[in-house]
Amino acid sequence: MKLTIDEVAQCLDVPLSTVERWIRQGRIPVGKSGGECIFQKPILEVWAKKHNISFTLSDKKVKKHSQDKPVNLFNAMAFGGVYYGIEGDSVSEVLESALKNIAFLDQDEKETLWVKLLEREEMASTGIGRGIAIPHPRIPLDESMEEPVIITCFLKNPLDYRAVDGFPVFVLFILLSPSIKTHLHLLSRLAFCVRDASFVEFLKRVPDQEKLLEKVENLEYAS
């Protein structure tokens, strides 16, 4: 397999000018055809091993990009969907009936997720005040998930959620994300919105999906 000088610089994680200098100084095995430098991958691998240098042909770069893609609240909420009139008299019941509504999880996944969510609630309530709770698993779900989702569930009856300010909770944002990083990112976004008193008032009126998403989008772009 043949590599170009840019690829080699990337594989060795050094700047291009270093590779150019190594070629000039004859420190790296290279073939020349015309004015172009051509590297043979197997030869380079042997060379790197001999010098104890890490040589990785990185797809990492590509993957990293997808992770770095900014996740926004609007997409996650739109993807998760909004559900109304969730019933239940205790935290566990509410969560169970909320999970029932989720279309993209199968039965097994729903159960494990339910256990995980409850585990988290037992440690400390996710009720962050003003009648809002953000249930989420402590450790992000495994890699099967690609995009983070937020499932919005309006409760039929406000429920004592042992929230920090003691107010009964009327809406759950179930937050599922593939990595801690996106989780924290979404959390901070969500917290930002909730801090806005008018948004909480707006939520209390139980808006329909379209209006809710529109409001979120506006809030996000304003920040």
Partner: peptide, 13 residues
């Protein structure tokens, strides 16, 4: 980081 890499490339034949 670069110093170490350079040293490894320059020594050990």
């Amino acid at each position: 980081d670069k110093y170490r890499k350079e040293l490894m490339v320059q020594t050990s034949f």
